[in-house]
Nucleic acid binder design. Structure first.
Lengths: 337, 337
DNA sequence: CTGAAAGCGCTTACAG
DNA sequence: CTGAAAGCGCTTACAG
């Protein structure tokens, strides 16, 4: 844990520079000394100090990952841990470390990730969300710091930033069409906060699907809420009491669907007989609900994996060309429609 | 992002040492120069480079967190993300960073966390699990590296390691007694892998509760499985086919319960009429199942928070006194018993 | 193919 | 109260 390059050098009878060169597998080192040095390293249990290395290389070989502060609401769904797994998998493969930053309301002035970036401890960052006018996003962009976002930054920005996302418009279109094909009408939409692009895109997909079937869009059927079960419950209650309750619901998140289902059951209605429901994220419990919930798998592992890959690309070719990557979704049909 | 202490020194007309001293708020610096230097720092947008600092201080101000490789099985339950939140919250408060290490089967030779520790990029680590004969655990212990485990390392070890855990024996005892009080007998146990202390403890609590009520223990009623829904399903099927099926089930994890519930329903039986069920972790979907699942909240946020606090303690007082911290659990009664 | 020297951006005895 | 110097553990031109 504390043997340095000097001690290795001494034991191997070479200079520290030489040891450094065999570590980096420099080609112009004789096989002989290479062997000698390697043996010395083994004998002493030497491991290069990454901090010292970072200081001279100006690269820490670590990427920062930002999780939104509202995460505790939807942290319950598998998106974040799965995305983290994907990021780790890709990062490990390249010998990179991953530093986690959970946004924290209680922080004074500077956000955790801002400190991380300013302190120079990460080479790039992955944001696991996109929010309109987000400070972290702006800070990264203003500093021209390498980063990629999981989720689509809106229009003006989207061609000047690296991101990976699902085709949320397409997925919502597919889900809505699925409902239309079951002859369910009207169709309600229970969505997460509208300052998230993901919400905007899913709304757009919903609208387009309606329009393509000549169904007129009615904003009374659209309820915005935070990503909580209570939110879903309340939204559904409003819909139920409206006097013109939808025959089907598209929920933007399974947690929302969980709440909505509860409201539907409490109203004495049956799923899917009276009301069908379909949602996003495909939580593990989905197949164990009664009836099992039809849901769209958004492939969070892949989202994380691709984001990391993309980040590595920007770290390598320092030219500022931007890229978007789309990860496919999959509608898992079960019994709720 | 790249202004150094030298430039600040030049602008403020002092030496780098002085700048360094005002950064660390050294007491014997005159208010005058303090002000001068602070202004220079602000003007240049200076932020100390954490890497350089780490190198001289031999402390990185970051803690490593290890998630088990089997995590993807139970990553679906809120334990890991919640624990991570707790860790982050405590770490941020102290200005520490958190580095994440998801165990990875595909890694050659050295595990990711071993690389992290050897590279000297973390001051201490938190293990989010304990497994008998675990390599990471042994490696940390052998190197006398500061770490705390969430979960109880078995007997021989437990007084020579820092850990935080629930009272799993007590919690399982409470749950089993809860079932006995409902006149349910026999009671089956569906448990996770027996190389985890958590499983051992919960089994122990189950046994003690039976014993205290003069119910004889029968290992036929105990089924071991991995932490998956399929595992729970299969275990329950075996129980159902045994000819002497338990009237109640204690499951060691909600995911296991999910699978078991499915098996029970498929067999045409009703919960709780025919079979009661209670489990651990209190996943968000628990209250939305039919019937809602009675489950034990193990307080993962607190577990993470306390573990971090404990780690900070060992980092400070370098004496090797070990400590255990117990986080309370809470049985949330719903309709499944 | 290999070594001596300078330097990465800080901190901290040691003087004064 | 403040500065010059040495050093944390590496890497990398520059010579040879």
């Amino acid at each position: 844990m504390k043997v340095t390059i000097k001690e290795v050098a001494k034991l191997a009878n070479v200079s520290p520079s030489t040891v450094s060169r065999v570590i980096s597998d420099n080609s112009r080192i004789s096989l002989d000394t290479k062997k000698k040095v390697n043996e010395a390293m083994k004998e002493l249990g030497y491991h290069p100090n990454a901090i010292a290395r970072s200081l001279v290389n100006k690269s820490t070989h670590t990427i920062g990952v930002v999780m939104p502060k509202s995460a505790h609401l939807s942290l319950a769904n598998p998106f974040f841990p799965e995305a983290l797994r994907g990021i780790s998998a890709r990062a490990n493969k390249k010998g990179f470390f991953v530093m986690l930053s959970v946004e924290d309301n209680e922080m004074d002035k500077h956000s955790n990730i801002e400190n991380i970036v300013r302190a120079g401890v990460v080479d790039g960052v992955i944001m696991l969300y996109y929010r309109l006018g987000d400070e972290t996003f702006n800070m990264l962009k203003d500093n021209k710091f390498p980063f990629v976002v999981v989720g689509k930054p809106v229009n003006g920005n989207s061609n000047r930033v690296n991101y990976v996302d699902n085709d949320n418009i397409g997925a919502a279109y597919e889900a809505t069409t699925h409902l239309i094909n079951k002859n369910k009408n009207p169709i309600g939409l229970i969505t997460g906060p509208m300052n998230l692009t993901v919400s905007l895109d899913r709304l757009e997909g919903y609208k387009r699907a309606l329009s393509d079937r000549d169904i007129s869009y009615n904003s009374d059927f659209v309820k915005e809420s935070d990503f909580s079960q209570e939110g879903g419950f309340n939204a559904m209650v409003t819909l139920l009491k409206s006097g013109n309750c939808p025959k089907a619901i598209l929920a933007t998140d399974d947690l929302l669907a969980l709440g909505a289902i509860n409201a539907i059951k409490k109203a004495g209605l049956k799923i899917p007989r009276d009301i069908s429901i379909i949602s996003f994220n495909n939580i593990p419990a989905a197949e164990f609900l009664t009836p099992p919930l039809t849901s769209i798998d958004i492939n969070p592992f892949e989202l994380g994996y691709e984001a990391t890959e993309l980040l590595f690309q920007c770290l390598e070719n320092r030219k500022s060309t931007y890229q978007a990557r789309i990860v496919p979704t999959k509608l898992i049909e079960r019994g709720s429609c």
